[in-house]
Amino acid sequence: MIPWILFFSLSFLTFSILATIYRLIKGPTASERVMALDALGIYLISGVAIFSILLKSRAFFEIILLIGILSFVGTIALARFLERGAVFERNQSD
């Protein structure tokens, strides 16, 4: 029973990733693309987690943490680029 539920959720995650990729390519402005990238990271994390439950393995947990870190840094960089037009600040006072 449990493996069927996991396969079912994995297939739905695949559909979600496809829909997110459509939004990533199509998105009218850059804000939609940033949101789509952030959501794509979350879908990847949940896919890896479900996969590790399915395989009864703990070897993939570091991948989850690494995708989380990279998604966090990337989202901050893109948000800063959208807000101020430059990724790195110059001449900050403090």
Binding site: V73, R80, V87, E89
Partner: peptide
């Protein structure tokens, strides 16, 4: 991963 940490510092506090 080390580079990601330093990049986060660059983003938040500025390169200088």
């Amino acid at each position: 991963a080390f580079t990601a940490a330093i990049t986060l510092l660059f983003l938040v506090y500025g390169i200088d």
